[in-house]
């Protein structure tokens, strides 16, 4: 049976295949999140000349489980000044917007009648931007509805930061889209058969990665939750699993940005070996980018707020525009 689809897709499958696929992608990525969490704490430890977690389980491997257990068993607490409904729904929005993007990450081409991706839509990368834009509401509503000054300031910072860096992010990806001639992520990976776009689009790659750090509120752009000034920014008033949701959403978003980076610039699923290795290659590339995220966190200090703004508007956006101009001219000439 073919399901009626709301959008054109290049490849249509039976609906049960789609459901199974979605479940597999979700479960795999979901089980990677705690691994990333542990890897981050372990690596940070090594970067800082200490061991990192090593008490729970062998080599501290059960630490994330212990953390989740602790968060789950905590009381669901709402501060007095908080707005009931919005306070509760905000962390869920954050997770939703990150998880939905997983649908378009390609882990391989069509193999044995099944496309190794959630769905391949012609609007492709725009889908990522649509849900990236909605991620903002999770942070802002959480910060605003908490009824606390620190939360509110954190939310406002995240709003300003998100608007500033979303532009640079979109512009930097346009170079790739121009070269591939398609918005679809599957087509973009296929277009990288000869050369990965990290080489011809190196400037775009740097801009995208920088903007990616800003979008995920990671060091050096973690001003929305700058702990020295704002306690914990938008998540100050959250505890228990609601705080856990924000935490989870942050790592999910890191994985999503890593996935988009791997797809757009690092050749996606392409790699030597038989075709069944494709998803492994994709996951490995995501891992490399995620490692880079952690490395940067251990290396760079936090920006000052005015530096953040002038860097975004006066350096990144003009540079990204120039990158598109040069790419467009080269694409037409060659």
């Amino acid at each position: 049976m073919i399901t009626p689809l709301l959008a054109d897709t290049t490849f249509v499958e039976a609906s049960w295949v789609m459901i199974v696929k979605s479940l597999i992608i979700f479960i795999v990525i979901l089980s990677i999140v705690p691994v990333v969490l542990l890897a981050e704490r372990k690596l940070l430890g090594r970067f800082q000349q200490r061991y990192g977690p090593n008490r729970v389980g062998p080599f501290g491997a059960l630490q994330p489980l212990a953390d989740v257990g602790k968060l789950l068993s905590k009381q669901g607490f709402r501060p007095k000044g908080a707005v009931p409904f919005l306070y509760e729904i905000a962390p869920a929005l954050s997770i939703l917007s990150a998880v939905l993007v997983l649908a378009i990450l390609p882990f391989g081409d069509v193999q044995g009648g099944v496309g190794l991706y959630g769905i391949d839509v012609p609007i492709g990368i725009l889908y990522f931007f649509a849900f990236g834009a909605l991620a903002f509401y999770g942070l802002l509503l959480g910060g605003w509805a908490s009824g606390s000054k620190y939360s509110f300031l954190g939310a406002m910072r995240s709003a300003a930061q998100l608007i500033s860096y979303e532009l640079a992010m979109g512009l930097s990806l346009l170079g790739v889209v121009l070269m591939a001639g398609s918005l679809s992520l599957v087509d973009i990976v296929k277009a990288q058969g000869e050369i990965w776009y990290i080489l011809p689009q190196f400037v775009g790659f740097l801009i995208f990665l920088t903007a990616g750090f800003a979008e995920t509120n990671r060091v050096p752009f973690d001003l929305p939750e700058a702990d020295a000034e704002l306690v914990a920014g938008y998540s100050t008033e959250y505890g228990g699993m609601r705080f856990g949701s924000y935490f989870f959403a942050e790592y999910m978003e890191i994985l999503v940005i890593s996935g988009i980076t791997a797809t757009m610039y690092l050749g996606g699923w392409m790699g030597p070996g038989p075709s069944w290795l494709d998803p492994i290659w994709m996951l490995a590339k995501m891992g490399v980018v995620t490692f880079f995220f952690i490395w940067i966190r251990a290396t760079l200090p936090r920006f000052r707020y005015d530096q953040l703004m002038s860097f975004g508007w006066k350096i990144l956006i003009p540079l990204a525009t120039l990158n598109i101009l040069v790419t467009a001219i080269l694409v037409v000439v060659i």
Binding site: V121, I123, A130, A133, L134, L140
Partner: peptide, 22 residues
Amino acid sequence: EAQFLAAAQIVVYAGAVMVIYV
């Protein structure tokens, strides 16, 4: 079936214009 319009609607309005309103 206006998929591009739908995406643009979310990116531009919900994602940029409304952020400033909020």
